[in-house]
Write a protein that binds this DNA or RNA. Structure first.
Lengths: 161, 161
DNA sequence: TATGAAACCTAGTGGTC
DNA sequence: GACCACTAGGTTTCATA
């Protein structure tokens, strides 16, 4: 895989217009096709067809709302490293972590810990309670938490470039 | 701050209807106000007014597209712990990390490291290159990377509960 | 195969009660 | 918050390059 987003055959995953459309949608997913079309020099139907195709291809996973955690009282954020007792399957971990609404992301990782769980809570007290519950999961040996002090960058999940 | 999302005065940040609207928008940010209204027993204009109010209040930050990283060739993901030489201001770090399109999130944290930077790259080679560049930033003493093996959970940035 | 133009239908929006 | 009227946008069809 080359780092410019093209496959081995040279066919770009996205042409320049698709990229521009996605960039626009990233900023305003409710923009009209006509508005997007004006920026990419395409008619509204043409934009719609491209968006439909991007959805079919799985490039576009859906459209969501961006919420401000602070405005909703989710003031505390932490990365919880999870150390497992013995070998635990990713499926087991997923099943466990999915049950926590406070878990916004989780993945198995290289290095010392077996998994890193991204937790959002209302308060340090709330965070503590969640971490306690995670630590009490049968497959968890211990955890190590690092609390977020200052958010610096927060971008869409996928880079534009 | 209580953990149920209400303030000290007892006024909920969101009433039940707002929460339902946001939940719907989280799943499909391009849903029509009429469709949303059908689910929350409200007319389309009423839904629109609530959404407008949520935007004004800053609860809704915007609407974005959810892209599949794999479909776009962003196959590699890592958490990079950054250790700074001396004291470095968050503003300095933000300015530096913002310049990397590969950085999808960054924050200062408690614990050993000074910051954690979430990086997405096309390949391990690409990731390596990005980490090298971060490590070469003037304020960075050293870095420690943990590469994501298996994504387990990936949710909207803010919990619904 | 992708597009543009037009037609048609649905949705957004502001005013009124 | 509902209802109405008006405007704007979504979606299909068809012709074209």
């Amino acid at each position: 895989m080359r780092s410019d987003g093209t496959g081995t055959g040279g066919e770009a995953v996205l042409d320049r217009i698709d990229a521009a459309i996605l960039d626009h949608l990233a900023h305003d997913a409710r923009a009209s096709f006509a508005t997007i079309g004006a920026r990419v020099n395409l008619s509204a139907p043409a934009v719609k067809r491209r968006v439909d195709r991007l959805r079919e291809r799985g490039v576009i996973d859906g459209f969501t709302v961006r919420l401000d955690p602070a405005a909703l009282g989710w003031a505390t954020e932490a990365h919880v490293e999870v150390f497992c007792a013995g070998r635990t399957s990713p499926a087991t971990m997923r099943a466990a972590f999915e049950r926590y609404p406070e878990v916004i992301a989780a993945s198995t990782v290289t290095g010392e810990a077996d998994a890193v769980v991204h937790v959002r809570a209302h308060s340090v007290r709330h965070l503590d309670e969640v971490v306690e519950r995670i630590a009490a999961e049968p497959f968890v040996e211990r955890t190590r938490s690092t609390v977020v002090l200052t958010p610096l960058v927060r971008r869409p999940d996928v880079p534009r470039a």
